[in-house]
Amino acid sequence: MSAQAPVTHRFDSRDPALIRTHLAASFGTPLRVRVGLDPPRLWQHRIDLGPVRLTQAAHCGDLHIDLAGPDALVICQAVTAPVVRTAAGERHRFAPGDVFVLAPPRHPCTVRWQAGSITTCVLDLDLLARVAGTAPAGPASPLRLAALGPAPPHLVRHWRTTTAYLREAVLGDPEAAGQPLVVGAAVRMVAAAALTVVTDAAVDDTTARDRRDAGVGTVRRALAFMERHAERNIRAADIAAAANVTPRAVQLAFRTHLDTTPMAHLRGIRLHRAHQDLLRADPERETVSRIALRWGFLSHSRFTARYRAAFGVPPSRTLYR
Rank of each mutant, 00 (worst) to 15 (best):
L128R: 08
H59I: 02
P142G: 05
T86E: 11
R14S: 15
E227V: 08
S301K: 01
A177R: 02
P104S: 09
E284M: 12
R306P: 04
R91S: 10
H272D: 15
V156N: 04
Q179G: 09
P139R: 06
V182H: 04
V122A: 01
L298K: 13
V183D: 11
L148W: 07
G116D: 10
P96I: 03
L181D: 14
A201W: 02
R85W: 01
D200R: 10
P39D: 14
R317Q: 14
A192M: 00
I65C: 02
C76Q: 12
A193P: 06
L266G: 13
C76M: 14
H92M: 01
D200W: 02
Y307V: 05
R167M: 14
A147W: 04
P314H: 05
T246W: 07
A222T: 04
Q251N: 15
A87W: 02
R46D: 08
L67T: 01
V74L: 10
L278W: 11
L125P: 08
T29R: 06
E168C: 04
R157M: 10
R270I: 02
L278Q: 06
D48N: 06
P96W: 10
V245K: 01
R46G: 01
I19A: 07
E90M: 07
P247H: 12
A58L: 06
A68W: 04
F225S: 12
A281D: 10
L127W: 01
H92I: 03
H229A: 01
E286L: 13
V183K: 12
F94L: 02
T260Q: 04
T246G: 04
L319I: 09
R209Y: 04
T199A: 10
A222D: 11
H272W: 05
R220D: 14
V156K: 08
H59G: 15
T161Q: 12
L145C: 02
V101C: 10
T206V: 10
A132D: 11
T256R: 15
R290H: 10
D38G: 09
R267W: 09
P39H: 14
H64L: 12
L128S: 12
W113E: 13
A3L: 01
T162C: 05
Q114A: 14
A72L: 02
V83F: 08
H9M: 03
A95W: 05
T8S: 08
L125A: 09
D98R: 06
E90I: 00
H22D: 12
A309G: 05
L258E: 08
I234T: 14
I269C: 12
D126M: 04
S2H: 13
T119S: 11
R273T: 03
S316I: 01
G116T: 05
R167G: 10
S289W: 00
N233A: 15
G69Q: 02
F100T: 03
L195A: 06
A103N: 08
C76H: 13
R248N: 11
A242R: 09
A264M: 01
